[in-house]
């Protein structure tokens, strides 16, 4: 039998080990879900288990179209905020008219995809984790499995597809809204015409900048879906477990979005 002081040292180490093992297990499960989803997309029809368009469209409506109002409000606000900060920062150098350059690049490459990802993680990622968690504790996922309906094909693929398509789409929408809102402030503050502002934006941006933002947003969409599914499908312990999974899903999604953003930017620029 171990001495009490040995146990006091061993317990935190064991707990840390368990957490690391659980984390690795979740990463492996997420990767497996991605693999299975690709499989069902590729061969589902041949196996007489096609991924149907209707649930994908429903998910797209839910994660994409319904999020337009909140994405618009936040994108517009951030556009104005960036314009304010930019003008203020450039004022000492007498270079306020260069604000267009900074605003255009920072919105398309960074702020629009990041803000969109965070909003969707909080809104749709949480909802997906809660839905799957509730289905898990009500045996609904077991029911699918014994009805010969593969749960990944039926539940995961539509959400994954919808998020991979709609987060970039929302990000492009946020680009337009944020640039438009920033333009309204810049033109009113600097006495610039709106067409002149748009010319400045066009001169500042290259297609690669928009693609940079859109590609990141697609990765964020996949991360949100996988994190939500991993958390939702591991729910234990009733309603409290669903609540915990939802919170974990949002926190982990946002953390992973920011980390993935950093890695993506590093890989794309260095």
């Amino acid at each position: 039998m171990a001495a009490p002081e040995d146990r006091a040292v061993a317990r935190p180490i064991a707990a840390l080990g368990r957490r690391v093992a659980l984390g690795l297990d979740a990463v492996g499960y997420g990767a497996s879900l991605l693999g299975q989803s690709t499989y069902w997309l590729a061969v589902g029809r041949r196996k007489r288990q096609p991924v149907r368009a209707a649930p994908v469209a429903r998910e797209m409506m839910s994660v994409g179209v319904s999020a337009i109002p909140i994405v618009s409000v936040l994108a517009g606000t951030i556009g104005v905020m960036l314009a304010l900060q930019g003008i203020d920062a450039l004022e000492p150098f007498g270079a306020q008219d260069q604000v267009t350059f900074g605003v255009a690049l920072s919105i398309t490459r960074e702020f629009a995809p990041l803000i969109t990802g965070i909003i969707v993680a909080g809104r749709s990622g949480a909802a997906l984790a809660a839905r799957l968690g509730t289905m898990q504790i009500n045996n609904e996922i077991d029911a699918l499995s014994v009805m010969g309906i593969h749960p990944v094909r039926y539940l995961v693929v539509p959400s994954l597809l919808a998020l991979i398509v709609m987060v970039p789409a929302l990000s492009i929408w946020a680009d337009g809204l944020a640039l438009g809102a920033a333009g309204l402030y810049v033109t009113s503050d600097l006495g610039m015409t709106f067409p002149a502002y748009l010319d400045g934006v066009r001169a500042a941006l290259e297609p690669g900048d928009v693609i940079h933002g859109v590609a990141k947003a697609a990765i964020f969409g996949a991360l949100i879906a996988l994190v939500a599914v991993v958390n939702g499908s591991q729910v234990r312990g009733g309603a409290e477990g669903v609540g915990r999974a939802t919170t974990h899903s949002v926190v982990q999604s946002i953390t992973l979005i920011v980390l993935a953003d950093l890695i993506f930017v590093f890989a794309a620029t260095r």
Binding site: N138, E140, D142, A143
Partner: peptide, 8 residues
């Protein structure tokens, strides 16, 4: 299933 497991 015991709970029915109907999709809510």
């Amino acid at each position: 299933f015991q709970s029915g497991a109907l999709f809510s």
